[in-house]
Simulated assay, not measured.
Amino acid sequence: MIEFFMIRAGFLFDWIELHVESKQGLKFFATVLVSFFVAAIILIELNRRHFLPEPFASHFSLSHLAAIEQAFNLLLALEVVSLIFSLSHSVTKSVGKQFEILSLILLRDTFKEFAHFSEPLVWAEIYPSLGSIVASAVGALLIFVVLGFFYKAQRSHPITADEKIRSHFILAKKMIALLLLFSFVGICVVDLWGYFALGLPENAFSSFYTLLVFSDVLVVLISLRYSAEYQVSFRNSGYAVATVLIRLALIAPIVLGAVIGVGTTIFALGISLAYNAFAPKPESLRDVN
C-alpha cells in the first residue's frame, strides 16, 4: 500500500515538474516576473500620487526601488520551487540550489535597504546603512564564487547496481519533495495573508528553510536504508548541517548573516572535496545520489 502511494506521488511530482520546468513553463514565469515588476512600479507611482485608497495604500511603498525587492521575492519563490524539484535528482544539486537562493536573498536585502530611502537618494540617509549594503553585496558575490568551485568539484560516483533499490529511493525523495512543494505553497499563502491582513513582515523563506532542515534530516535517515557507508552518511549529514547554518544566516544580523553564509558555502565545498577524496570505491558503493 505504501509503495502504491509512493508511485502515485512520483507520477504527480513528475507531471508537475514537466510542466513547470519545461521551456513553455519557464517562458510563462519569466513573463509573469516582468509583468509583476512593471505593475509594482505603476502601483508605487499611483501611491506616490495618492491615487490608491486605504487600506491598500499602506501596503505599498513610496519608493520605486521597492519594486525591485518585490520582484526578487517572486524570483526567489520560483527558485525555491526549482530547489524542491532538484531534491529528487541529487542531494548535492539541491544543496547547491540552497546556496544559490541564499545569494539571491542577500542581493534582495541590498535592494531592501535602498527601498527605505527617499527619492532622490540622499547620501546622509544612505551612509548609516552602507555597511549592511556592502556586506550583503560582497557576501552574495563570495557565495557565487565559492559555489562555482563547489559545482566544479562534483564527481559522478556510480550508484548501486541494483536498479530497483535506486528507483525506490528516488520515489521516496519525490514524495518528500512533493510534500515540500505543497507546504511551501501553504507557507506563501499564510505569509501573504499575514502581510496584507495583519501587516506582518515577510517570513516565507525563513519558514521554508526551517522545514527544509527537517526534510534534509529525513532524507539522511531514509538513505541509511540503502547505504551504510560512513562516507556517504557523513556527506549527507554534513549537507543537512549546512542547511541549518543557512537558516541561522537568514535570522542573523545582516553583516553576520553574510559571514555565516560565505562560511557555510566553504564548509559545503570542503565536504564535497573530502567526499571525492575518500568516497567508497565504485564496486562497493551503495549510495543513491
Rank of each mutant, 00 (worst) to 15 (best):
F37E: 12
F4K: 09
L76F: 05
A30V: 13
L65A: 08
N236T: 02
L43F: 11
A67C: 08
A140V: 06
I176M: 13
Q154S: 13
S237I: 11
L218C: 04
V122H: 07
I101R: 01
I68W: 14
Q24C: 06
E100A: 02
A66W: 11
V146D: 04
R108D: 01
I159Q: 15
S207F: 12
I105K: 00
T265A: 09
A204T: 01
D191W: 12
V80E: 02
E21R: 11
F51R: 11
T160C: 13
S206T: 14
A9W: 10
S272W: 00
H50N: 15
G131Y: 15
S61F: 05
S129V: 10
E45Y: 15
T31Y: 11
E45R: 15
I143R: 11
V134T: 15
F29N: 09
I101C: 00
L52N: 07
G186I: 04
S227I: 07
Y226W: 14
L52T: 06
I68Q: 06
L250W: 01
Q70A: 09
L245R: 02
T160I: 11
L83I: 01
A67T: 06
E69W: 01
P253G: 04
P282R: 10
L285A: 10
S206H: 14
G270Q: 06
I7Q: 09
S183L: 15
V34K: 07
I105Y: 01
A66K: 07
I159L: 13
H59Y: 12
Y230N: 07
L74I: 09
K152Q: 14
L46Q: 15
F150T: 10
A197S: 13
A40T: 09
A39H: 09
D109M: 12
S223N: 12
P128K: 08
S207E: 12
G270K: 03
N73P: 03
D191R: 01
L33D: 10
A240K: 07
V34I: 15
A115M: 02
K174I: 13
A242T: 07
V241T: 11
F278Y: 12
F208V: 02
F114K: 05
V122P: 04
F149H: 11
R48W: 07
G25L: 10
S22K: 11
L52M: 14
L107S: 02
S103W: 10
L104C: 08
A258L: 08
E69F: 00
F85M: 05
E79M: 03
W15T: 07
I251N: 02
F117Q: 06
I16H: 02
L248D: 03
K152I: 06
P55F: 05
F60W: 12
V80T: 00
D287Y: 13
E17Y: 03
G148E: 14
M175A: 11
D109E: 11
L87A: 01
F85G: 00
I84H: 00
L75C: 06
A268V: 04
Y230T: 07
R166E: 13
F184A: 02
F150C: 12
G263P: 05
S94C: 03
F36D: 05
T265Q: 04
F99C: 00
A9Y: 06
I176Y: 03
F51I: 06
V288L: 08
I254R: 10
A274P: 04
E119H: 15
S223T: 06
